[in-house]
Amino acid sequence: EDTPTSDDLEQFAKQFKQRRIKLGFTQADVGLALGTLYGNVFSQTTICRFEALQLSFKNMCKLKPLLNKWLEEADSS
């Protein structure tokens, strides 16, 4: 899998936040949902820092596919 560039991550974080708000989920909701879906719960702080691009590049890269999958799930339900 290609490592995203920081531009990709920035773009995704922006879109993710917009979609999340549009779908009516809080950052805490997302963190809990990730726990339900993938077995690891993320704190509201982590989601907040992802959206604000304040996590390390490595952590951003790790979270992106999970959040992307969550968006697909949320969109289809």
Rank of each mutant, 00 (worst) to 15 (best):
F16M: 02
K69Q: 13
T45C: 07
K22A: 13
F16D: 00
L23Q: 05
I47Q: 01
F57D: 09
Q44L: 06
K58F: 07
T36A: 12
S77V: 13
S76N: 13
A74I: 12
K62V: 10
S56R: 04
K64R: 09
I21P: 01
N40F: 07
R49T: 04
C61V: 11
L9F: 12
Q18K: 14
F25W: 08
S77R: 14
W70A: 03
V30G: 01
N59T: 11
G31E: 06
S76A: 14
M60Q: 03
M60G: 03
A28G: 09
S56A: 05
D7Q: 15
T26I: 02
G39M: 02
K64A: 10
D8L: 07
L63H: 03
F50M: 03
V41F: 07
I47G: 00
Q15E: 13
P65A: 08
T3M: 15
R49M: 08
F12D: 03
Q11G: 09
Y38D: 11
Q18V: 08
Q44M: 08
T26M: 02
F57W: 07
N68H: 07
F16S: 01
C48P: 09
M60S: 04
N68I: 07
D75T: 12
I47F: 01
F12N: 03
I21V: 10
Q54N: 09
R20M: 00
V30A: 06
G39I: 01
T26E: 03
V30Q: 00
L71K: 03
G35M: 07
L53Y: 13
A28P: 01
L37H: 07
N59W: 10
N59L: 14
T46G: 02
R20Q: 00
E1N: 15
R49K: 14
Q44R: 10
L63G: 01
D29S: 06
K58N: 14
N59M: 14
G35S: 14
D29E: 11
S77Y: 08
A33I: 08
L71Y: 07
A52R: 07
R19T: 11
I47Y: 05
Q18E: 13
D2H: 13
N59D: 15
S43P: 09
K64N: 00
V30N: 04
S77D: 13
K14W: 07
T3K: 12
N59Y: 09
E10V: 14
K62S: 11
L53H: 12
K64H: 11
M60L: 05
V41Q: 14
D8Y: 04
T45A: 11
E72D: 13
K62G: 07
V41R: 12
A52I: 02
P4L: 15
E72I: 09
S56F: 00
W70I: 02
P65S: 04
I21L: 12
F12G: 03
V41I: 08
E73Y: 15
E73D: 15
L23E: 03
S43L: 03
G39N: 12
L66T: 06
D7A: 08
P4H: 15
I21H: 06
D7C: 15
C48A: 15
F42Y: 14
G24F: 00
D29N: 06
R19M: 09
Q11Y: 12
R49P: 00
Q11R: 13
E51L: 00
K69T: 12
K14G: 06
K58G: 11
A13S: 06
K14D: 12
F42R: 05
A13H: 03
A13Q: 01
L34N: 01
S6A: 15
Y38S: 12
F50E: 01
S56L: 02
T36S: 14
L37M: 14
K17A: 09
E73T: 15
T3F: 08
G39C: 03
D7W: 15
A74P: 05
A28Y: 09
A33G: 05
D29T: 04
L71R: 04
R20H: 00
A13V: 11
L66R: 06
E1P: 15
A33M: 10
Q54V: 03
P4W: 15
D7G: 15
S6Y: 15
T46S: 08
L63R: 01
Y38C: 10
K14F: 05
W70V: 04
D2A: 11
E10S: 12
A74M: 10
T5K: 11
N68T: 14
D8N: 14
L37I: 15
S56E: 08
T46E: 11
L55D: 04
D29Q: 11
A13F: 01
E72S: 08
L9S: 03
K17P: 02
G31C: 12
R19S: 07
F25H: 06
S43Q: 07
F50P: 01
T45V: 10
N68A: 12
L55F: 05
L34E: 00
E10F: 15
A52E: 14
K69L: 08
L66Q: 06
T45F: 09
Q15R: 11
P65I: 07
I21A: 06
E10Y: 14
E10L: 15
S6E: 11
G31D: 04
E72L: 13
K62T: 10
A52V: 02
Q15F: 07
F42H: 08
L23A: 07
T26F: 05
A13W: 00
L53T: 08
K62C: 06
T45D: 15
A28I: 07
A52S: 13
D2C: 09
K62I: 11
L53A: 13
D2T: 14
T36W: 05
I21G: 03
L53C: 14
S56C: 05
T46I: 09
F12A: 05
T26P: 03
S77F: 08
A74R: 11
D8K: 10
S56T: 08
A28L: 07
V41A: 13
L67T: 04
C61Q: 09
F16L: 03
A13Y: 01
E73S: 10
N40D: 13
L37P: 05
I47R: 02
E73A: 08
G24W: 01
L23N: 06
I47E: 01
A33F: 05
R19V: 07
F57I: 11
F57S: 11
G31Q: 07
K69D: 06
G35N: 13
L63D: 01
K17I: 04
E1Y: 07
N68V: 15
D8H: 11
L37S: 09
K14S: 10
E51Q: 01
L53I: 12
D29R: 05
L67E: 00
F16Y: 01
N40C: 14
G24N: 04
L67C: 03
I21C: 06
D29K: 06
A74H: 11
Q44E: 15
P4T: 15
D75C: 08
A28K: 15
Q11W: 07
R19Y: 02
A28H: 09
N40K: 12
C61P: 01
R49N: 14
Q18G: 06
T45H: 10
K17W: 01
E73P: 04
K22H: 07
Q18R: 10
T3E: 06
L9I: 15
E10K: 15
S43W: 03
R49H: 05
Q44A: 14
Q15I: 10
Y38V: 09
S43H: 13
L55Q: 03
F50K: 02
Q15K: 13
Q54K: 14
W70G: 01
E10D: 06
Q18C: 08
A33Q: 13
K14Y: 04
L63F: 04
L53N: 12
L37W: 07
A28W: 05
F12H: 00
I21S: 05
L23W: 04
T46V: 09
A74L: 10
L34D: 01
F42W: 09
F12I: 02
F16H: 00
R19W: 04
S6L: 14
L34K: 04
Q44G: 13
D75S: 14
L66W: 08
K22I: 06
A28S: 10
P4F: 15
E51Y: 00
L53E: 05
L34S: 00
F12T: 04
S43K: 08
W70T: 00
M60R: 02
K14R: 10
N68L: 13
L37R: 12
S6W: 15
F12Y: 12
L67S: 02
G31N: 04
P4N: 09
Q11C: 08
T45R: 12
